[in-house]
């Protein structure tokens, strides 16, 4: 009952920005998050080998760009994870952290050897400082167990 009431209270907060939009796209270019993750054999193992979550390719040919007009699921999900990282830094919620864990872990569904491993992620913030790209680690998660699941 409390859950339903909380959802009802939250609905206007979620819907109103769409019905009365601000439209201030790219008004200020702020620091940009990058997600990095590491897989560990145990939760106590020190994290060392951080890898970028879904690094960009060097090139995307024009036909592929045009094809992505119709099917861009991978990229749009990556942008949602970036949004979750921004939300996690602005207003931390379990939802944002869960979504990031869930979507990183799902990328290992074809790697059964990682079943039972421990996953951590961190958020690096990139910004411009004195005409150079500066980088700082803004968040490091606790480890969670990876459960390989072909049907999610």
């Amino acid at each position: 009952m409390h859950h339903v009431f909380a959802a009802m209270i939250r609905t206007p907060k979620l819907l109103l920005p769409a019905l009365v939009p601000s439209w201030n796209f790219f008004n200020v270019i702020g620091a940009s998050p990058r997600i990095e993750y590491t897989l560990l054999k145990s939760p106590e193992e020190p994290a060392g080998d951080w890898r970028e979550f879904r690094p960009r390719p060097n090139r995307v040919p024009l036909p592929a760009m045009l094809g992505r007009l119709f099917w861009n699921a991978w990229w749009n999900e990556t942008m949602f994870v970036v949004s979750c990282a921004e939300r996690l830094l602005d207003e931390p919620t379990e939802h944002s952290e869960n979504e990031i864990f869930r979507r990183i872990a799902a990328d290992f569904d074809d790697c059964p050897e990682w079943n039972g491993a421990w996953l951590r992620f961190r958020i690096a913030l990139l910004s411009e400082h004195e005409n150079r790209i500066a980088r700082e680690i803004a968040f490091v998660s606790d480890p969670r167990r990876v459960v390989i699941n072909t049907v999610r």
């Binding site: 201030n24 796209f25 790219f26 008004n27 200020v28 270019i29 940009s32 998050p33 990058r34 960009r56 390719p57 060097n58 090139r59 995307v60 760009m65 992505r68 990229w75 942008m79 970036v82 990139l126 910004s127 411009e128 790209i133």
Partner: peptide
């Protein structure tokens, strides 16, 4: 919101979008 921002008027903001925002689809 762009025209009132000096960084947009001098091209710096768009350069930052390409340089370090999450949006560019490739390193190219």
């Amino acid at each position: 919101v762009k025209i009132v921002n000096p960084d947009w008027r001098n091209g710096r903001a768009l350069r930052q979008v390409f340089a370090f925002s999450a949006y560019p689809v490739s390193e190219g």
